[in-house]
């Protein structure tokens, strides 16, 4: 077991990645962008509250709004940064002509894939950890617990794992890093958009089928939504924000996910006072689906880079 975690590729990647000024610059730029956007947003709503008032609990509301912006912004940045980190994992080794040297050692192809992915995810984790001070500003205003932030970060890592595995998969499939990166980005964005459009279409059809009856349709989650981490994020955040958005969003989410976020706190929190989120919420199932798909993609990638397959004897490899 100890040897499983002693992955030479991971150790070397971690060492090399943090060498030089690039990594430090990337972290600085990342936090800088988040800080700038959070500051601008914070300033806008603060100005608005000071000028027009209208908030009964302005402090908590500002905190929640800044949290929402930071959460979505960080999610978007992770979606953008992760493929760039992983899409070159294998193809760059091919381009540098170092892959063969690696493959003829005793390290397995799954070990290479694991090392490459975990080193990329470590960098994403570093970015996420770097953003903690920024997120902690939200605690000044209240409304969000450290547990909420930890859960959000966990979901980020699951998302990064899923998106990263798409990058690794493309990297294993394509010879050039540029092709792999472009394909990974296109796949991720097409998946993001197509699942929403297709999901909306499936929802419309579902409610149409109940149009002639007087019964209230039971909640329905279009299966394609499970492929989209943005929907999982929406679910998680709505639970954490306790129906802050009010009106339409909780009503839609009740129809889809089967529970609403009304009432100042989520049902789970109200009943137990411990749980941060509803057991078997959509985002958890979403995470499990994403993890499963990611594992499948990583398995295929490892198979793809493995040079010799025992069962292929006598079968001509093109």
């Amino acid at each position: 077991m100890k040897n499983f975690f002693r992955n030479p590729v991971l150790e070397s990647e971690l060492k090399v990645k943090m060498r030089g000024w690039r990594a430090a610059m990337a972290v600085t730029a990342y936090i800088g962008i988040m800080l700038l956007i959070a500051y601008l947003y914070f300033k806008t709503i603060l100005d608005s509250v000071l000028r027009y008032g209208g908030y009964n609990s302005a402090s908590q509301s500002i905190g929640l709004q800044v949290y929402s912006v930071l959460a979505v912004l960080q999610f978007a940045l992770i979606i953008l940064v992760t493929p760039a980190q992983t899409a070159g994992a294998i193809s760059a080794e091919r381009e540098k002509q170092t892959l063969d040297l690696l493959l003829c050692t005793k390290i397995s192809s799954i070990g290479i894939i694991f090392g490459k992915l975990v080193s990329s995810l470590s960098f994403i984790l570093l970015l996420i950890i770097g953003s903690i001070p920024l997120f902690s500003l939200v605690f000044l205003f209240g409304g969000i617990s450290p547990g909420d932030v930890a859960t959000l970060f966990l979901f980020y890592m699951i998302t990064a794992f899923a998106v990263g595995s798409i990058g690794i998969f493309c990297s294993a499939m394509f010879k050039k890093t540029v092709t792999a990166a472009v394909t990974a980005y296109i796949t991720i964005f097409v998946l993001g958009i197509v699942t929403v459009i297709l999901g909306a279409y499936m929802l419309a059809n579902y409610y149409d089928s109940f149009a002639q009856t007087s019964t209230t349709p039971p909640p329905y989650i279009p299966s394609v939504f499970y492929l989209n981490p943005a929907i999982g994020l929406a679910d998680l955040m709505l639970q954490q924000l306790d129906g802050m958005s009010g009106g339409l969003v909780p009503s839609i989410s009740r129809s889809i996910f089967g529970y609403s976020y009304y009432g100042g706190s989520s049902a789970a929190t109200q009943n137990t006072g411990i749980a941060f989120w509803k057991p078997w919420s959509f985002w958890i199932k979403n995470s499990l689906v994403l993890i499963s798909i990611a594992c499948l993609l990583l398995g295929i990638s490892a198979w793809k880079i493995k040079p010799v397959h025992r069962w292929k004897r006598g079968w001509e490899r093109k």
Binding site: N3, R6, P8, V9, E11, S12, K15, V16, R19, G20, E95, K96, Q97, T98, D100, L101, L102, T105, K106, I107
Partner: peptide
């Protein structure tokens, strides 16, 4: 191999150490 590359940012000893660790 006939054509091969090397890793940027790795020193000579680290390079050999890396491959040594790949062989366990």
């Amino acid at each position: 191999p006939d054509f091969f590359g090397v890793y940027d940012n790795l020193k000579v000893m680290e390079y050999l150490d890396f491959y040594g660790s790949c062989y366990g």
